[in-house]
Amino acid sequence: MSRESDVEAQQSHGSSACSQPHGSVTQSQGSSSQSQGISSSSTSTMPNSSQSSHSSSGTLSSLETVSTQELYSIPEDQEPEDQEPEEPTPAPWARLWALQDGFANLECVNDNYWFGRDKSCEYCFDEPLLKRTDKYRTYSKKHFRIFREVGPKNSYIAYIEDHSGNGTFVNTELVGKGKRRPLNNNSEIALSLSRNKVFVFFDLTVDDQSVYPKALRDEYIMSKTLGSGACGEVKLAFERKTCKKVAIKIISKRKFAIGSAREADPALNVETEIEILKKLNHPCIIKIKNFFDAEDYYIVLELMEGGELFDKVVGNKRLKEATCKLYFYQMLLAVQYLHENGIIHRDLKPENVLLSSQEEDCLIKITDFGHSKILGETSLMRTLCGTPTYLAPEVLVSVGTAGYNRAVDCWSLGVILFICLSGYPPFSEHRTQVSLKDQITSGKYNFIPEVWAEVSEKALDLVKKLLVVDPKARFTTEEALRHPWLQDEDMKRKFQDLLSEENESTALPQVL
């Protein structure tokens, strides 16, 4: 008996699950189920560990084997000379395990699969056993689809999209007709009724959600790893209520002995410091949205989908001078704002400069500016000194954290500008005749005249004003913003236009 009217009423009120309206889709043409990776026989039982391990490696599972009696060998002398080797079968990115008779397991190899009674669906509900069930008529011709799209860092995100009359449910929550939600590992998919569980979705590319604290899981769906560094790992996640993407940084307390840091400095109150950081608001710094204190720290951040500045300059790639100017102007505005709010970044580098898009002209935002507030000064500097390429001379020669101030950030900005303009770092371990530390503390950077011949004198002058060993003589952010190279009204107008595109209400910060 159909429950279409009941569920449609529920759909009209929406769902609290991570779902959002989605535009129309072009329906895929039908194809045989076997060619799409559906096993030839149905099963109602969950797999054992041996079955799972075989399939996850990209080899055929026991459900897909063919009797050897149906095959015969071709003698080598009868092999056609022009026969080309077969292409290897792509490894599946996800697996659906059937929970009921009449449904088959599915190895997801393609990027898009339609499910329903219509014969054009890649996964067609046409098993005779299924057709005899009382629920068969409640399934729509095109009930739902599972697909994946390219996300940040060229990774993939799996989604389920509801197109049914009676509802598609993920972990008992209604997706909603015309809406989608991301699928995470071990999600249970039910059709027409929330208790009519048909599939379990296994994402073969992500970790299980159960490793994360419950308070975090209640608000966010964790997904793929976006990156990792000395101070922690960053994962893509989704807000459950809105389906908006965020980035979540995970900082290990054990790695940084944060408990010991608190004992050594009783004034170090991470929760208080995070609340201060959350109040920071500038178009060129990453917004801190939320914070969870569990076995590790979880910092929920605004997501930038254009990648890191590092990706644009790695491998001796240089940027156009006009692009360097647009990016560097924004970096200076961001660091100036942090300094005005009493925050020294201490870890400025291309990896911590994020881009809003893949376009050459785009907004940038500074991230990882609050680590000293979370990890403690000593722990952070011990970590950073392991990779000193961007560290100021006074940091390398000081004991502990004494003896330096916000000028350290201006040195790091000078190193970043040098790399963007030239395509190579000013200080490098590859210069074996002088140690990296000695290069930095003496201010002897690697200047290649033929490379810098293409760079304007004004740009080079600003680099020199920032890479000054004496912090008292080094340019401040205010002085850098007043430098002739940055007195470019076309560049500032472009920045204002980019801000307006992102948010019509965002105004250009005042600069002296």
Rank of each mutant, 00 (worst) to 15 (best):
S2C: 08
S2P: 13
S2W: 10
R3I: 04
R3Y: 05
R3T: 12
E4D: 06
E4S: 06
E4Y: 14
E4L: 07
S5W: 14
V7S: 05
E8K: 08
E8S: 07
A9R: 13
A9P: 06
Q10L: 08
Q10V: 06
Q10P: 11
Q10N: 12
Q11P: 07
H13C: 15
H13R: 09
G14N: 06
S16G: 11
S16P: 11
C18I: 09
C18S: 13
S19K: 05
S19W: 06
S19A: 10
P21I: 10
P21R: 06
P21N: 05
P21T: 09
P21V: 06
H22Q: 09
G23F: 02
G23H: 11
G23Y: 02
S24Y: 09
V25Y: 05
Q27N: 13
Q27T: 09
S28P: 09
Q29A: 09
G30H: 04
G30R: 05
G30D: 06
S32C: 12
S32Q: 07
S33Y: 06
S33V: 09
Q34I: 10
S35F: 15
S35R: 10
Q36I: 11
Q36F: 09
G37A: 08
G37K: 15
G37Y: 14
I38E: 14
I38D: 13
S39P: 05
S39T: 06
S41T: 14
S41P: 13
T43Y: 12
T43C: 15
T43V: 04
S44E: 10
S44G: 07
T45P: 09
M46R: 07
M46A: 05
M46G: 07
M46K: 04
P47G: 09
N48S: 11
Q51A: 06
S53N: 06
S55C: 07
S56L: 04
S57F: 13
G58R: 12
S61N: 09
T65F: 08
S67E: 05
Q69P: 04
Q69F: 00
Q69T: 02
E70W: 05
L71M: 10
L71F: 12
L71P: 13
I74M: 15
I74T: 14
I74R: 14
P75Y: 13
P75S: 14
E76V: 10
D77L: 08
D77F: 11
Q78A: 10
E79G: 06
P80R: 10
E81A: 06
E81K: 13
D82G: 10
D82T: 11
D82Y: 08
Q83V: 05
Q83F: 02
E84A: 04
E84Y: 13
E87N: 09
E87Y: 11
T89P: 11
T89F: 11
T89A: 13
P90S: 07
A91G: 07
A91E: 08
A91L: 09
A91V: 10
R95D: 06
W97M: 13
W97Q: 06
W97D: 05
L99W: 06
Q100P: 10
Q100K: 10
Q100E: 09
Q100I: 15
F103A: 06
F103E: 09
A104G: 14
N105P: 13
L106E: 07
E107V: 15
C108L: 05
N110L: 11
N110Q: 05
D111T: 08
D111M: 12
D111I: 11
Y113L: 13
Y113I: 10
W114N: 11
W114I: 12
W114P: 00
W114V: 10
F115R: 02
F115I: 13
F115K: 01
F115G: 02
R117L: 00
D118R: 06
D118E: 08
D118F: 04
K119C: 10
S120H: 11
E122F: 14
E122L: 15
E122H: 12
Y123K: 15
Y123V: 15
F125Q: 03
F125K: 03
F125I: 07
D126E: 08
L129K: 04
L129I: 11
L129W: 11
L130Q: 03
L130T: 14
K131Q: 04
R132Y: 10
T133S: 08
T133N: 06
D134Q: 07
D134S: 14
D134H: 13
Y136N: 15
Y136G: 05
T138P: 02
T138A: 06
Y139C: 03
Y139I: 01
S140A: 03
S140F: 02
S140W: 08
S140G: 02
K141F: 04
K141S: 07
K142T: 15
H143D: 01
R145A: 02
R145M: 12
I146N: 14
I146M: 10
I146R: 01
F147C: 02
V150G: 04
V150L: 02
G151Q: 15
P152A: 02
K153R: 02
N154A: 14
N154F: 12
S155M: 15
Y156D: 09
I157A: 07
I157L: 13
A158E: 04
Y159C: 15
I160Q: 01
I160R: 02
E161S: 10
E161R: 04
D162N: 08
D162E: 13
D162C: 12
D162K: 01
H163I: 12
S164L: 03
G165I: 12
T168P: 03
F169I: 15
F169E: 02
F169S: 04
V170H: 14
N171W: 03
N171H: 08
N171D: 05
N171Q: 10
N171F: 05
N171P: 00
T172I: 07
T172E: 02
T172C: 13
T172D: 03
E173I: 15
E173H: 13
E173A: 10
L174Y: 03
G176L: 02
G176N: 00
K177S: 06
K177L: 10
G178E: 12
G178T: 02
K179F: 06
K179I: 06
K179W: 08
K179A: 06
R181D: 05
R181L: 03
R181F: 15
R181E: 02
P182D: 00
L183R: 02
L183A: 03
N184R: 03
N185G: 09
S187K: 07
S187C: 06
S187A: 04
E188L: 05
I189M: 05
I189A: 02
A190T: 09
L191S: 00
L191D: 03
L191V: 13
S192P: 15
S192G: 05
R195F: 00
K197S: 03
F199S: 03
F199H: 03
F199T: 01
F201P: 01
D203Y: 15
L204G: 07
D207L: 02
D208S: 01
Q209Y: 13
S210V: 00
S210F: 05
S210E: 05
S210D: 04
S210M: 04
A215S: 02
A215T: 11
L216S: 04
L216Y: 04
R217G: 09
R217Y: 02
R217T: 05
D218V: 05
E219R: 14
E219G: 10
E219P: 13
Y220G: 02
Y220E: 02
I221P: 00
M222C: 06
M222L: 13
M222H: 04
S223L: 15
T225H: 11
T225V: 02
T225K: 15
T225W: 05
T225N: 08
L226R: 14
S228R: 04
S228L: 01
G229D: 06
G232A: 02
E233K: 13
K235Q: 10
K235M: 11
K235N: 07
L236S: 01
L236M: 06
A237W: 09
A237E: 15
F238R: 01
E239D: 06
E239M: 05
R240D: 09
R240I: 07
K241Q: 06
K241R: 03
T242R: 07
T242Y: 01
T242D: 06
T242P: 07
T242W: 01
C243Q: 07
C243G: 14
K244E: 08
K244G: 06
K245T: 07
K245W: 15
K245Q: 09
K245Y: 06
K245I: 14
A247I: 01
A247K: 02
I248R: 02
K249T: 01
K249V: 03
I250E: 03
I250A: 05
I251Y: 03
S252K: 10
K253C: 10
R254P: 01
F256P: 06
F256A: 04
S260L: 15
A261W: 04
A261F: 06
A261C: 03
R262S: 06
E263H: 07
E263M: 10
E263L: 14
A264D: 08
A264N: 02
A264I: 03
D265Y: 15
A267S: 14
L268S: 09
N269Y: 12
N269A: 02
N269V: 04
E271D: 07
T272N: 00
T272V: 03
T272Y: 14
T272S: 04
